[in-house]
Every structure is written in structure tokens, then in C-alpha cells.
């Protein structure tokens, strides 16, 4: 922090004040005048896909966006494990400095209190069931794959912290990476049916809002997730199409990526075994 003392610190402070004034003045100008723009159209049409507007926004209108965002999490897991030592590469032909690796954390599980020891397993099981509940109800509620993945991996972390390496939720290396691969790969491939049928990648052929596909495809992809909305005005049927499937793939991906990060940071990485 030597650099930020004395004259330099004062200059930096003045610069930060200028930036803050600029940002605040622009936010102040924008207050009360935010333009709804295209979102009005989105909201007006959202009910055609899923009963929950958020699910429609995230997985249908901006579904491809969410795919790349999901890939950010996948890459995060990949890079974190790489830094720990998974897949470090060296040139065959020349000697280099040996790669930096991190040691596994030390676990002292013998000091666990009785309460923690007996409540740990039920808590982890409850967390996992909660995650499953969230991902299955995603098309009707605001929840979804991200949340499910985070909850499930927190159950994994809880078990690992309480019981050490031989915890009840014992994920193997390949298993975790496989789950991530199924998740992201599955999400990416869910765009394929729409691409083959209409030419638009990730067109939701189950919901078929713009009537672009033959009714047989609409039935195959739409019917398994058909919902009946019983309202005062009568009973309405709608189907979110591939949105629930995307949600499940998303959950798999997040479990794979965050699970890999936890695994690598807890146990380090060695290429032997498994």
C-alpha cells in the first residue's frame, strides 16, 4: 500500500470523488425516468410460456443469454480446479519450474460435538430435498436451477466440513465433472430440437408461442409439463415447454461447477486414483 500514501493518495481520492459525483449525478438524472422500452412487450407476452414471468424472462426470452451465463459458472469451476492443479500442462521438450499446487486442508473431525455429529446428516438430507423441491417447481415459482445447485452444493460442503473426507455425500472427482458436463451439455443441446424444427436455436417448441412447429412436436415437448390454471374466469391450460428441462440441466451444471470448486479447495488435486 506504499503507493497510496502521501501525495498519490490525495490525488487518487480526488479522482474517486470526481467519479462518484459523475455517477451519482447521472443516477439522479435517471431517477423516475427509467424507460421501460421492450420490457413492456416481454411482460405482456410472458404468460404465454410460463405462469411465472421470471422463468419466462430468464429461460425463454433471454434463454441463450442464460446459457452463456451458465457457462460462466462452468468455466469458473474449471479454472478454479485448474489453479489448484487439475490439468496443468507443461511443454514436453523443455524443463520448467514445477507447477504450483495447493495442499489439501487438514480436517480435525474428532473434535466434533455430539449435537453437530447427529444433526449434520439430517440437515444435509433436508437441504438436498429442499434443492430438489425448488428445481421441480421452477416453472411456477421464481426459483430455478441456480438456486437448486447452490443449495445442493451447500449440503455437500456441510457434510464435508462436519465429517471430513469420508462424508455421507461422497462425490468422486469424475462424478462431479460428469454432472457439470451433463448440465451444461444438456442445456446447450436443449436448443437442438428448436434448431432442427424451425432454424432458430433454442426455440421453445413445447410452448410454441409463434406457431412455427407442427402440432405433433408441440405435443411431445409440451404435454409432459402441461399446467392447468384454475381461476375465477375458468380453467386455462398452458405449458412452459422446455423451460423445466433447462432448469434441471442448469441445476446439474451448478452442482458440477461449484462442487468441483469445493472439492478442489478442500482436498487439493492429485491425478492419481479413481
Amino acid at each position: 500500500m506504499e503507493e497510496l500514501k502521501g501525495k498519490r493518495g490525495i490525488i487518487a481520492l480526488i479522482a474517486l470523488i470526481i467519479i462518484t459525483i459523475g455517477l451519482l449525478s447521472s443516477l439522479e438524472k435517471l431517477t423516475g425516468r427509467v424507460n421501460p422500452g421492450i420490457s413492456e412487450v416481454y411482460n405482456a407476452l410472458a404468460y404465454l410460456v410460463a405462469p411465472n414471468n421470471l422463468a419466462t424472462w430468464v429461460y425463454d426470452w433471454r434463454g441463450f443469454d442464460t446459457l452463456i451465463e451458465t457457462a460462466v459458472i462452468y468455466v469458473g469451476g474449471l479454472v478454479s480446479a485448474l489453479v489448484i492443479g487439475r490439468g496443468v500442462v507443461q511443454m514436453k521438450k523443455c524443463k520448467q519450474e514445477s507447477p504450483v499446487t495447493s495442499k489439501p486442508l487438514e480436517f480435525r473431525v474428532e473434535s466434533l460435538t455430539v449435537i453437530l455429529e447427529y444433526l449434520g446428516i439430517p440437515a444435509a438430507i433436508l437441504l438436498i430435498s429442499y434443492g430438489i423441491m425448488i428445481v421441480t417447481g421452477s416453472s411456477t415459482s421464481g426459483g430455478g436451477g441456480f438456486q437448486c445447485g447452490v443449495i445442493m452444493t451447500s449440503a455437500y460442503l456441510l457434510a464435508a466440513i462436519l465429517y471430513g473426507k469420508n462424508n455421507p455425500i461422497k462425490f468422486g472427482k469424475r462424478f462431479i465433472i460428469g454432472i457439470g458436463a451433463i448440465g451444461l451439455g444438456g442445456y446447450a443441446l436443449l436448443g437442438l430440437p428448436g434448431y432442427l424444427a424451425t432454424g432458430y436455436w433454442q426455440y421453445n417448441i413445447g410452448a410454441d408461442v409463434w406457431s412455427l412447429v407442427p402440432s405433433i412436436l408441440h405435443t411431445i415437448f409440451g404435454d409432459p409439463f402441461r399446467l392447468s390454471l384454475i381461476l375465477k374466469e375458468g380453467v386455462f391450460y398452458s405449458t412452459p415447454g422446455i423451460v423445466p428441462l433447462i432448469n434441471i440441466a442448469e441445476a446439474f451444471n451448478v452442482i458440477g461447477a461449484i462442487g468441483l470448486i469445493y472439492f478442489a479447495f478442500l482436498y487439493g488435486w492429485s491425478d492419481e486414483g479413481e
Partner: peptide
């Protein structure tokens, strides 16, 4: 890192001051 951060803040402030 601190030096780069310092220069980035300075540049950024100059850009905002000039344009605003």
C-alpha cells in the same frame, strides 16, 4: 496491482471530467 489501480482511477476520472 496498487499502481495499476491508481493509474486506472486517474485515467477514469480524467475521462469522466473531460466528457462531463
Amino acid at each position: 496491482l496498487n499502481r495499476v489501480l491508481y493509474w486506472m482511477v486517474i485515467y477514469f476520472a480524467i475521462i469522466i471530467a473531460i466528457t462531463l
